[in-house]
Amino acid sequence: MSQKDRDTSYSRLFAEELRLAEEAKEVVRDRALSGKELYKLHQELAGQYEKLLKTTIKLSRISDIQGKKLKEQEQEIQTANESLKHLEKLRQRLIADISHELGTPMVAVQGYVKALLDGVIQPEEKYMRLIYDRVLTVNHLIKDLFLLSTFQANQNHFEHQRIEIGAFVRAVERKFMPDCERAGIAFDMEMPGEGADPVIVWGDPVRLDQVFENLLRNAMKFTQAGGSIRLCSEFQPKYEGALLGHWFVKVSDSGIGIAEEEVPHVFERFYRSKRASANGIEGTGLGLAITKEIIQKHGGEIGVTSRAGEGSTFFFLIPAESVTSVDGQTRSMIKGGLS
């Protein structure tokens, strides 16, 4: 409500009093001409009453404003309180997760060190390597847990910038192709050709690189030598000919796949499929949970389709646009103007 509307509302609220005050002023004004002192006093009294009404209106307005501010402050306090409760739940959950997940590797480290101290085993390389690997596992686990918790508590700031996805995906290919070759896994790419219009997203390149790191490393982990991984990247317009749409990415592998009943749980923290455990495939179960948080922070969605023994396909989409050129410069509809 505007200030003018509020003034009109208060005037309407005190309309009867204002009308009576005005009538009283007119009556005593006419009769005061008679020169009688009493009517002059009546005229002064009517004027004071009018002033009192106007002061009352102002006080009512001030009270209303203060009331609204108090409600706003109450809402802010309530929101802050809910935020603190949320952070406390995350803290408790983090402590519980750390206590649970650190137990196994730390017990192993403790056992090896005690055996070394007691002379049961000698400080051979294989035992030192086992201890080192367990320590690395603990370090990665703590790092991933902290990262995931900051995402969920909205305490991790993203550095969004313009990313041309063609160049970005080609950099991903150059990064992972040698690793796949060493593992004996075929790595294929599917993306628009050189003549296609450039497509951009506004995102954090470090975090998006982490998404590809998690998805592709995951695919390599579950795919044996002789298998294949396929990365598809395309722009999907909102409708035919539209410049705005989504960047759609699929990472498919020919690995061991995921059982149908386990598919809904793969993005949960610490979830590891039974087939992964049975095949001795290590992991903390945090990579996909982190990936989901990153995609959601970019306004996107992520999912998976899979069948046991037939491989998996992880996919995500985030807002993107196909840009056009004007006098050699690209026009961005998301940011507006030329960029």
Score class of each variant (00 low, 15 high):
residue 286 L to S: 07
residue 99 S to V: 14
residue 105 P to L: 03
residue 236 Q to F: 00
residue 165 I to G: 00
residue 95 I to G: 01
residue 257 G to D: 03
residue 265 H to Q: 12
residue 93 R to M: 06
residue 230 R to H: 15
residue 107 V to F: 11
residue 246 H to R: 12
residue 11 S to L: 15
residue 150 T to Y: 06
residue 246 H to G: 06
residue 330 T to F: 10
residue 43 Q to W: 13
residue 19 R to C: 10
residue 16 E to H: 11
residue 279 N to V: 00
residue 139 N to W: 04
residue 59 L to R: 10
residue 103 G to H: 12
residue 339 S to Q: 11
residue 240 E to T: 14
residue 280 G to E: 11
residue 66 Q to L: 11
residue 189 M to A: 02
residue 90 L to M: 05
residue 232 C to E: 08
residue 173 E to C: 07
residue 251 V to S: 06
residue 141 L to G: 03
residue 134 R to P: 00
residue 173 E to Y: 07
residue 47 G to V: 03
residue 158 F to S: 15
residue 325 S to E: 15
residue 38 L to C: 03
residue 44 E to G: 02
residue 249 V to P: 00
residue 196 A to M: 03
residue 106 M to E: 02
residue 237 P to S: 06
residue 329 Q to L: 07
residue 243 L to V: 02
residue 35 G to Q: 11
residue 82 E to C: 06
residue 61 R to T: 09
residue 334 I to M: 08
residue 116 L to E: 01
residue 319 P to T: 02
residue 326 V to E: 11
residue 37 E to N: 02
residue 285 G to E: 05
residue 220 M to D: 09
residue 18 L to G: 01
residue 38 L to Q: 08
residue 319 P to R: 01
residue 305 T to N: 08
residue 97 D to N: 10
residue 248 F to Y: 14
residue 254 S to M: 10
residue 129 R to F: 05
residue 301 E to P: 00
residue 32 A to Q: 09
residue 213 E to V: 02
residue 306 S to D: 06
residue 160 H to I: 06
residue 277 S to Q: 10
residue 324 T to E: 13
residue 247 W to L: 13
residue 88 E to F: 09
residue 242 A to W: 01
residue 259 A to D: 09
residue 173 E to P: 03
residue 26 E to C: 07
residue 45 L to D: 12
residue 26 E to R: 15
residue 71 K to W: 03
residue 19 R to G: 09
residue 151 F to A: 07
residue 224 Q to R: 14
residue 224 Q to K: 12
residue 98 I to K: 03
residue 6 R to M: 09
residue 177 M to P: 03
residue 213 E to Q: 10
residue 232 C to R: 15
residue 134 R to A: 02
residue 33 L to S: 11
residue 243 L to F: 08
residue 98 I to P: 00
residue 301 E to W: 04
residue 332 S to T: 04
residue 146 F to H: 08
residue 227 G to A: 08
residue 9 S to Y: 15
residue 156 N to I: 05
residue 307 R to A: 13
residue 57 I to A: 11
residue 269 R to C: 02
residue 315 F to G: 01
residue 199 V to P: 01
residue 36 K to Y: 13
residue 247 W to V: 03
residue 131 I to G: 06
residue 212 F to E: 01
residue 317 L to A: 07
residue 219 A to N: 01
residue 300 G to D: 00
residue 240 E to V: 11
residue 320 A to E: 06
residue 206 V to I: 14
residue 77 I to E: 10
residue 305 T to H: 07
residue 201 V to N: 00
residue 201 V to E: 00
residue 110 Q to L: 14
residue 339 S to D: 12
residue 227 G to S: 09
residue 330 T to Q: 10
residue 104 T to C: 02
residue 6 R to C: 01
residue 234 E to T: 12
residue 246 H to W: 06
residue 236 Q to L: 05
residue 229 I to M: 04
residue 276 A to V: 02
residue 145 L to I: 08
residue 274 K to I: 15
residue 192 P to C: 05
residue 113 V to M: 10
residue 326 V to H: 12
residue 169 V to Q: 01
residue 92 Q to V: 05
residue 327 D to V: 04
residue 10 Y to S: 13
residue 157 H to R: 15
residue 177 M to F: 12
residue 282 E to W: 04
residue 149 S to Q: 12
residue 151 F to M: 13
residue 231 L to V: 13
residue 187 F to N: 04
residue 105 P to W: 05
residue 126 K to A: 14
residue 166 G to N: 05
residue 115 A to S: 13
residue 39 Y to N: 04
residue 148 L to A: 14
